[in-house]
Design a protein around this nucleic acid. Structure first.
Lengths: 206, 206
DNA sequence: AGTAACCCTGTCCATCGGTACTATGTTTTT
DNA sequence: AAAAACATAGTACCGATGGACAGGGTTACT
C-alpha cells in the first residue's frame, strides 16, 4: 500500500500537514531511507541535513518526492528538481494546496511554488535549449550595467573590486546589485553565483 | 464556464481526444486567440504554425496550455514551457493519460512527457547533491564536520542556516568555516563555491 | 513638456562575515 | 601520560554587505 511519509528533523509538527493527510506518518531521514519505496509519497523539509541526497536516493527508488521549504528560493528549487523531486512548495502551504500538490505529483506532474515557477522552468530546462537563450531569461531581464555587475560579482569579486574595475563607486555597484537580486529573485551574491553558474555547468555537460 | 479548446490545423481528428474530453471543442488558432480566456484549457498541437506565439499569448491571458507533439523533442518541450505551457505530451497519448494531464495542469502542475522528464531530471548536476560521496583531494583534507559545513555553505546557505540545519551554533560554523578557508586556501565563501563548483565540473566529466 | 527608464551617487543602518584569541571536553596518536 | 587533533562555543573587532530612501543627470518615447 502506498504510504505517506513526512521527513522532518523533529521540531516541526504542523497541524496543517496532518489536516491535509490524516494518514501521514512522521519519520526521521534514516527511517525514510530505510522504509520508503516505489510509489510512496515522501515529503521532505529542506531544513534537514543532506535533504538533497535523501531526495536523490528515494526518487531513484521510485518514490514521489516533494520538498517543502520554509524560505523557498529559486536555487533550492532547482536543486530539488535536479535531485529528482517532483514538487517544491512552501512549508506553510495550506492543507488544500498540499492536497493539490499531492494530486499533481501522484499523476506524474511537477508542482513548483508559483512565484518561482518561471525561474525554475527557465533554469531547469535551459540545458536542453542551447546556450543562445539562456541569457534571455535570466540575464535578459537585466540592463547592461546590471548584467556586468552580476557577472563580475558571480566571478567572486567584491563590491569594491567591481567598482574599481567598472570605474564607478561601490555605492553604485550596490545599487545595481540590489536590482539584480530583485529581478533574479535571489537574496544574496551566493545565490546569484549559484544561479549563474548553473547555466555554464549544464551547458558544458550537454 | 471553463471551456476546453483543441487547436489544430484541420487534419487531425483523433477519437482519443474526444473520448478523453467529450465536451472538447475543436478550433483554429485564430478562433482560439479570439475566444480563449482565463481558466480555459487549451490543447495545442505543435504542428500548427506559430504555436509558441499562441501559447504565449493565451498563457499570459490566464489559460491553461498543453502542447501536444507528434514527434516530441526536448528542445520543443523547452520552447513550450518557456512560452508558458503547463504541459507537453505526445499527441497520441491515451485517453486516460490525457485526463491525467488535465488533472495535473488544472491543479497548477506541470506535466512533461515522461521520457523527456527523465532526461531532464537525470541530466547532470551532482555538484552539491553528493555529500555522501567521498571525493576530491580538496575535500579530502577536511574533517567530517568541516566538509559538511563547506558543502552547506557552497549550496548558498548562510552561516545561521547551516547552524540551524546542523544543530550547532553559528560560532561553531564560523570556526569550521575558518578551518575550511585555511585548508583550501580561499579567502571567503565566494571563492569556496567557485572552487567546489569547478571541481564538480571536472568530476562529472570524468 | 512630460513620463519613464536607466545610470550614477550619496546617507543611514542593521546584519552578516571573517579573523583573532580563548577555552573546555573528547578522541586519537605518540 | 603527554601531545595532537577535533568539535564545540564564547567574546570582540571591523570590514563587507544589502536594504531603505533620496537625489541628479541622461536618453528615449509620447
Amino acid at each position: 500500500m502506498k504510504q505517506h511519509l513526512f521527513v522532518c528533523q523533529g521540531l516541526d509538527d504542523i497541524p496543517r500537514w496532518k489536516e491535509a493527510f490524516p494518514y501521514l506518518r512522521r519519520c526521521t531521514p534514516q527511517q525514510a531511507r530505510a522504509q520508503a519505496g516505489a510509489g510512496d509519497h515522501v515529503w521532505v523539509v529542506s531544513q534537514i541535513e543532506g535533504w538533497s541526497g535523501l531526495v536523490q536516493t528515494l526518487s531513484q527508488r521510485g518514490a514521489v518526492l516533494v520538498v517543502l521549504a520554509y524560505s523557498p528560493s529559486s536555487v533550492e528549487a532547482f536543486q530539488a528538481l535536479n535531485a529528482g523531486a517532483r514538487g517544491y512548495a512552501h512549508a506553510f502551504s495550506t492543507a488544500p494546496l498540499l492536497q493539490q500538490i499531492e494530486v499533481v505529483t501522484a499523476n506524474q506532474g511537477i508542482w513548483v511554488w508559483p512565484e518561482l515557477l518561471a525561474q525554475v522552468v527557465g533554469s531547469t530546462f535551459r540545458a536542453l535549449g542551447g546556450e543562445a537563450r539562456m541569457r534571455d531569461d535570466a540575464l535578459g531581464l537585466l540592463t547592461e550595467r546590471e548584467r556586468a555587475v552580476a557577472l563580475a560579482v558571480a566571478s567572486g569579486k567584491s563590491n569594491k573590486e567591481v567598482a574599481r574595475d567598472m570605474d564607478i563607486t561601490d555605492r553604485t555597484v550596490k545599487a545595481h546589485l540590489g536590482a539584480v537580486f530583485r529581478k533574479l529573485k535571489v537574496r544574496d551574491r551566493m545565490q546569484l553565483i549559484l544561479l549563474l553558474s548553473q547555466r555554464s555547468e549544464t551547458t558544458s555537460s550537454a
